[in-house]
Design a protein around this nucleic acid. Structure first.
Length: 286
DNA sequence: AGATCGCCCTGCTTGC
DNA sequence: TGCAAGCAGGGCGATC
């Protein structure tokens, strides 16, 4: 599943292989892939045609391609299984190919949106003065954004009546943190996922944010090396998930700090992985 | 308005 | 072996 570092790798790939090219034709092969484009697939393709693609942008797990000389952008979310690939035009269609974008040049490659589970999709939206697509105005800056405000995040944590993992996954507070990196950062900070945010001290928030950034940067460092080829590829191919996870998916395996078997708990239709010794529950939560 | 929860989707894994 | 249930999970809309 693509998390923020993988999405950033995709953004860089798009910037290199797609930005600057002019759209010649768009094929929408599955309506669900453009469900956020209310006017439908036909309208989506028609509005892209003839426009030059600007520099690829990203916030959290959203990325978008501005259409040059227009106040609009193609917004993309990869969801659970989405991929954006730059493929040779004569390459065989992927089994779950949803959208194809051809360009008005002789480079011989096309952009493909491939998505097995169809949680992701593309859509076209108006952009505001700062270039942000209007439909993601509510998405907070992500922790790798230089303009992310650590103090404001801390203040928001103190105001909320919620627990820390819910807050980490709340895209209006901080974006780009998914279930995996939330568990990783909490393990590193020795925090239980049900710890109330109202009692957080400034140093604790700072430590947590530091660990969130560390795990993301580590994954980015690994994942950013493998894409320097003709193809923009993503989707867990960084190898980071195979070797470097300390918490996620490690139920029953020894904690890398203290050796205590790690636990998994059902949580919000998901799972939370934690060390019962390093990450003590706040009250009667086991 | 803040918090919670169900739903969308498909392929792999697990269990009977 | 075959089938059903469970699981993965980001984001959004409905609900309280």
């Amino acid at each position: 599943m693509p998390e923020l570092p993988e999405v950033e790798v995709v953004r860089r790939g798009l910037e290199r292989w797609v930005s600057g090219r002019i759209v010649a034709d768009v094929q929408v092969l599955h309506p669900r892939a453009v469900r956020r484009h209310i006017a439908g697939g036909e309208d989506f393709g028609g509005r892209l045609k003839g426009h030059r693609v600007g520099l690829a942008q990203r916030r959290g797990k959203y990325l978008w391609l501005p259409l040059a000389d227009t106040p609009s952008a193609v917004l993309a979310h990869l969801g659970m299984s989405g991929q954006l690939l730059v493929q040779p035009q004569d390459a065989a269609d992927e089994k779950h190919l949803r959208i194809r974008v051809r360009f008005d040049d002789a480079l011989g490659t096309e952009l493909r949106f491939v998505d097995q589970r169809t949680f992701g999709g593309l859509s076209l939206h108006e952009t505001s003065a700062d270039g942000l697509p209007d439909v993601i105005a509510h998405i907070a800056r992500d922790p790798l954004d230089p303009l992310f405000d650590d103090d404001a995040f801390h203040d928001a944590l103190r105001r909320r009546r919620t627990t820390i993992k819910r807050a980490l996954l709340d895209q209006s507070l901080i974006s780009g943190v998914g279930n995996i990196y939330a568990d990783e950062a909490l393990w590193r900070t020795r925090l239980h996922y049900e710890r109330p945010t109202s009692g957080f001290t400034r140093p604790r928030t700072a430590e947590l944010l530091g660990h969130v950034r560390d795990v993301m940067n580590a994954a980015l460092a690994v994942g950013g090396t493998s894409f320097d080829s003709l193809y923009v590829n993503v989707n867990g191919e960084s190898g980071y998930f195979d070797r470097s996870l300390d918490a996620y998916g490690r139920e029953g395996e020894p904690c890398r700090r203290c050796g205590t078997p790690m636990r998994r708990r059902p949580w919000m239709n998901r799972s939370s992985y934690f060390c019962p010794r390093c990450q003590r529950p706040p009250r009667a939560v086991s």
